[in-house]
Write a protein that binds this DNA or RNA. Structure first.
Length: 601
RNA sequence: GCCCGUGUAGCUCAGUGGUAGAGCAGCUGUUUCGUAAACAGCAGGCCGAGGGUUCGAAUCCCCCCGCGGGCUCCA
C-alpha cells in the first residue's frame, strides 16, 4: 500500500501536435506555450551535448513538470562543471534565435539521417506510421513528434539542475544513460520563485526536521528502519491513540497476529509468488519462514478459526503491528520509503449485501480523518484491473463499478488510473495535496474477490448454507511512517496541540522563578498535558527562541508579577502574546484545544 | 539492485600529499535578565570500515558500508 514519492510528471500537450507552426506561438494558451518551451529547451540541450561530445548517442527528451530532461549515452560521466558549460552553450543558441523547423519524412530517410544513432533507430522501428517527425534548428536535428516554439529564442528562463542515471526505456536490463534535468519557466521571476520553493521544501524536509525536533533517526546499522526517539514515539503513539478512538466509534476490533510465519501461508495468499522478492525469508529448523509484509494473510487465517454466522458480519479486524518489506536499497528514503513500518490496517469481512455500505463507511472515516488532521478534501483515484490479475473479469467489473458508485455516492469526483489496481483487487486511492502543493498517496480501499477464495473462508448465511465473504482491505493513514513523514513536511513540524510531543514550555524569567514554574507545570500535568520547564541558565529571550525552534505550541512565561498573581504570560508559537492568564484559564484553553483537536494555537 | 555524487566533532561546514580547524550545540563558571541567540573558559575527532601506493595519506588508488539525487514518462 506504499507508493513512491511523487515523480517528475510528464507534461501533455493539449494540442494536436504538428510539425508546423499553424498558430503563432504568442497566440497559444499559456500551458501549451510552456509545454513547447520545455520541449524546445530539451532540443537545445541535446544540441549543446552533441557539440561537446560529437560521438554522443541521444535518446529521448520530453518536457516534464517544472522543466525538461534529455537522456544521453556518453563516453564519460558528466560533472557538475559540465552543466555550467552546457548551459552557457544553450544560451548561445537562445541568443542566435534559430528557427525550429519540422517536417514529416519517410522512415527510410529517417533511418539514413540517424544511421549512427541506435536509440533513434529503435524509436523509428517502433513508430507505426509510415512517416516520422524530423525537427531541425541550426545544425541540430532530432526525431521528434513536435510541439515546439518557433525559434530557440522563445524558450524562456531555464537552469540545468542535476544529472542522474536512467535506464533506457526505464528497463533495468537495458543500458544506463545519463539524464540531464533542467528547470524551465516562462520568465526569470517564475524560475527564481520555483528555485526558491525548492529551497523552502528542503527546510521542511522531514529528515531534517526529524533531527532538529529530535523525533527519530535512521541508523546505518538498520537501514530503512526508524529509531523513534521519545518525541517521535509520542507522535507515533498519538496516531495510534487517535485511531483506536475512532475504532470504538466505527465498530472495529483490534487484533495482534504473528510477525513471522511458515511461508505456506504466503503460498496460499499468493504473496510468495507475487511478492516473494520483497519479503525477508529465512530458514528455522529446516522450515522456510517469512516475515509478514502485509496483514491480510494473518487476518484470513484468524477468520478461519471457528464458525462465523452472517450475524457476526461485518467483522472489522484492525491491526497496528509492524510489517517488513525488503525494499531495494536505492529506494529507501527517510520515513517515506522504509523497510520496517506499520499501518492503520484493517480487513473487513462482510456479506455481498453489506459491501457497499462498508465502502461508504470507509469514505466517511476518511473524510473525518482528513478533517481532523487538516488535510483538506481527499483527492481520489480509482485504479482498475491490471494486465496480470486473478479472478473473473465479471467480478472485476463489478468491483470496479461498486467502487466508482461508492465514490459518487459519497459526493466525490475521481480520476481513473487504468491498469493500476493490485493483482487481486481494484483500489480506491486517497491522495492529499500538502501545504506546498505536492500530492501524496496515503490510504486506500480495495474490494478483494480473490483472497477469501484462496483461504476458503466461509460464513453460515441466513439460509443455513455456506457462503464466501467479501473482503475489503483498507488503510486511511496508510503506513504510519509514511504518514508521519508527510505530515511533518505538511505542517513544517508545527503539529496541532493534541499531537505535539511537548504542548507547553514554562519559561521562568530568573531562576528564583523556577519553583513557581514547576508548580505551573504540575498543575497542567494533572490535566494530562505534556509540559516542560526550561530551567537552563539562559536569558528569557533565549528560552523563547529555543521553544519556538522546537515548535512548542505554548510558551508560559513566569516572573515576579505572574508568581504573585498565580498566572502565566501566554505566548503562542505563532508569535501571539495573549498576556497574563490565570492557571485555571490556561488549563481550560489547552485542554479544550487538545480535545477539539484544534489545528493551530 | 543500477548510474552519478557524497561521507571530517552531536549539527552545519573549511581543510587536495607534510603537526586536524571554525561556528552552533555540550560542559563549567559569571550573570538573574520581561517575549526569537548574555559573557568567559573547557572539553570534544581511528577524517565511514578495510586494504594499497608513498619517507609521509583526511587528501591518491582499490574494495566494502551508509547517505543524497535519479531510474514506469516513449520520438
Amino acid at each position: 500500500m506504499l507508493s513512491a514519492r511523487p515523480r517528475w510528471r510528464p507534461m501533455r500537450s493539449t494540442y494536436m501536435v504538428t510539425t508546423g507552426h499553424d498558430i503563432p506561438f504568442a497566440a497559444l494558451p499559456a500551458d501549451e506555450r510552456l509545454f513547447r518551451q520545455r520541449h524546445s529547451a530539451a532540443h537545445v540541450l541535446a544540441e549543446a551535448v552533441l557539440e561537446m561530445f560529437p560521438e554522443a548517442k541521444y535518446a529521448i527528451g520530453p518536457p516534464i513538470e517544472h522543466g525538461f530532461y534529455y537522456d544521453f549515452d556518453l563516453p564519460r560521466s558528466l560533472t557538475p562543471d559540465d552543466l555550467g558549460v552546457l548551459e552557457a552553450r544553450m544560451r548561445e543558441s537562445v541568443t542566435r534565435d534559430l528557427e525550429i523547423r519540422g517536417e514529416q519524412i519517410p522512415k527510410d530517410e529517417a533511418r539514413r539521417l540517424f544511421a549512427n544513432q541506435p536509440y533513434k533507430l529503435e524509436l523509428i522501428d517502433d513508430i507505426e506510421d509510415a512517416t516520422v517527425g524530423h525537427f531541425t534548428h541550426g545544425n541540430y536535428q532530432d526525431l521528434c513528434r513536435g510541439g515546439h516554439t518557433e525559434t530557440t529564442g522563445q524558450i524562456g528562463a531555464f537552469k540545468l539542475t542535476h544529472v542522474a542515471g536512467a535506464y533506457w526505456r526505464g528497463d533495468e536490463k537495458r543500458p544506463m544513460l545519463q539524464r540531464i534535468y533542467g528547470a524551465l519557466y516562462p520568465t526569470q521571476e517564475e524560475l527564481d520563485a520555483y528555485l526558491l520553493s525548492v529551497e523552502e521544501a528542503e527546510k521542511r524536509d522531514h529528515r531534517r526536521l526529524g533531527r532538529e525536533l529530535d523525533l527519530f533517526h535512521i541508523d546505518p546499522l538498520a537501514p530503512g528502519a526508524p529509531f523513534y526517539h521519545p518525541n517521535g514515539a509520542q507522535l507515533y503513539n498519538g496516531l495510534l491513540d487517535y485511531m483506536r478512538g475512532l475504532y470504538v466509534e466505527y465498530g472495529y476490533t483490534e487484533v495482534i497476529t504473528p510477525q513471522i510465519f511458515n511461508v505456506d501461508i504466503f503460498k496460499t495468499s499468493g504473496h510468495y509468488d507475487h511478492f516473494g522478492d520483497d519479503m525477508f525469508m529465512f530458514q528455522a529448523d529446516e522450515v522456510e519462514m517469512g516475515v509478514k509484509p502485509m496483514n491480510c494473510p494473518g487476518h484470513c487465517q484468524l477468520f478461519r478459526q471457528g464458525l462465523h454466522s452472517y450475524r457476526d458480519l461485518p467483522l472489522r479486524l484492525a491491526e497496528f503491528t509492524r510489517l517488513h518489506r525488503n525494499e531495494r536499497s536505492g529506494t529507501l528514503h527517510g520515513l517515506t520509503r522504509v523497510r520496517s513500518f506499520s499501518q492503520d490496517d484493517s480487513h473487513i469481512y462482510c456479506t455481498p449485501e453489506q459491501t457497499n455500505s462498508e465502502i461508504q463507511r470507509g469514505f466517511l472515516m476518511t473524510r473525518r480523518i482528513y478533517d481532523d488532521f487538516g488535510l483538506g478534501t481527499p483527492i481520489i483515484r480509482l485504479a482498475t484491473r491490471p494486465e496480470q490479475f486473478v479472478g473473473s473479469i465479471e467480478d472485476w467489473t463489478n468491483a470496479e463499478r461498486m467502487l466508482g458508485d461508492a465514490i459518487h455516492h459519497a459526493g466525490y469526483e475521481y480520476t481513473l488510473a487504468p491498469g493500476e489496481g493490485a493483482f487481486y483487487a481494484p483500489k480506491v486511492e486517497f491522495h492529499f495535496r500538502d501545504a506546498i502543493g505536492r500530492s501524496w498517496q496515503l490510504g486506500t480501499v480495495q474490494v478483494d474477490m480473490a483472497m477469501a477464495h484462496r483461504f476458503e473462508l466461509r460464513y453460515i448465511g441466513e439460509d443455513g448454507g455456506e457462503h464466501v465473504p467479501t473482503m475489503l482491505h483498507r488503510a486511511i493513514l496508510g503506513s504510519l511512517e509514511r504518514f508521519l513523514g508527510v505530515y511533518i513536511e505538511h505542517t513544517g513540524g508545527r503539529f496541532p496541540l493534541w499531537l505535539a510531543p511537548v504542548q507547553a514550555t514554562v519559561i521562568p524569567i530568573a531562576d528564583r522563578h523556577n519553583a513557581y514554574a514547576q508548580k505551573v507545570q504540575a498543575r497542567l500535568q494533572k490535566r494530562g498535558l505534556r509540559v516542560r520547564v526550561d530551567t537552563s541558565n539562559e536569558r528569557m529571550n533565549a528560552k523563547i527562541r529555543s521553544a519556538q525552534l522546537q515548535r512548542v505550541p505554548y510558551m508560559l512565561v513566569v516572573g515576579d508579577r505572574e508568581a504573585e498573581a498565580g498566572a502565566a504570560a501566554v505566548r503562542t508559537r505563532n508569535g501571539e502574546d495573549l498576556g497574563a492568564l490565570s492557571l485555571a484559564d490556561i488549563a481550560k484553553r489547552l485542554v479544550t484545544e487538545r480535545d477539539k483537536r484544534v489545528l493551530t494555537p
